[in-house]
């Protein structure tokens, strides 16, 4: 039969665990290369000045993603798990804070005439952050970068083609 827990020992232990966890969490977060900034609101949708494409234009572009000339690039800025569950066929998977994926994209993006970036849709902001990464930190011309603001949700709602699994 389970014994009663002493009234004082448990709260003290919980306090000790909480304090140690908090200190360790702050230390590891500060040292982690991908650690989060505690005071930053990551989900406040930033204003942007990038060009946008409508759902119709997005659908038109999507027909040319497998052209061998390859001067059109689609970028899925959502998390890898979301991409693998379903993405626009031919899109590159470039989640935020994934330098390897960004490097793969850059090899292609430097020669691209049009780069269309999308994320989940609604108030998602990852497409804007990825566009900023490309243009402000990697020298891609802003003239070739477009954002599909409707995102994945609008694409699915419109019956757009989907592909699951890792692709690019």
């Amino acid at each position: 039969m389970m014994r009663m827990i002493p009234p004082r020992a448990l709260p003290l232990q919980m306090l000790a665990v909480a304090a140690a966890t908090l200190l360790l969490a702050l230390a590891v977060n500060a040292l982690h290369p991908g650690g989060v900034e505690l005071g930053r609101d990551y989900f406040q949708k930033p204003q942007h000045e990038f060009q946008t494409v409508s759902a119709e234009e997005f659908a038109d572009y999507s027909q040319y993603l497998y052209e061998p000339e390859g001067d059109l690039v689609f970028v899925d800025a959502r998390r890898r798990g979301q991409y693998e569950r379903g993405h626009v066929p031919g899109a590159y998977c470039v989640p935020r804070n994934d330098p390897q994926a960004l490097e793969v994209l850059l090899e292609k993006a430097r020669d691209a005439a049009v780069i269309v970036i999308y994320c989940q849709g609604g108030n998602c902001e990852d497409s804007i952050f990825t566009a900023e990464d490309l243009v402000y930190r990697n020298g891609i011309l802003p003239e070739v970068v477009y954002i599909f603001e409707g995102g994945w949700e609008e694409w699915v709602a419109a019956g757009g083609a989907q592909k699951a699994g890792a692709e690019r």
């Binding site: 919980m14 966890t21 908090l22 969490a25 989060v36």
Partner: peptide, 28 residues
């Protein structure tokens, strides 16, 4: 949210280690 993202995984790791090794076992 950011504090939770930093703290919850550490609670699981540190709490799990406490459980495994018997340190502050009941608190963890």
């Amino acid at each position: 949210e950011n504090l939770a993202a930093a703290g919850v995984p550490m609670l699981e790791i540190f709490g799990g280690l406490c459980l495994a090794f018997g340190l502050w076992r009941r608190g963890a």
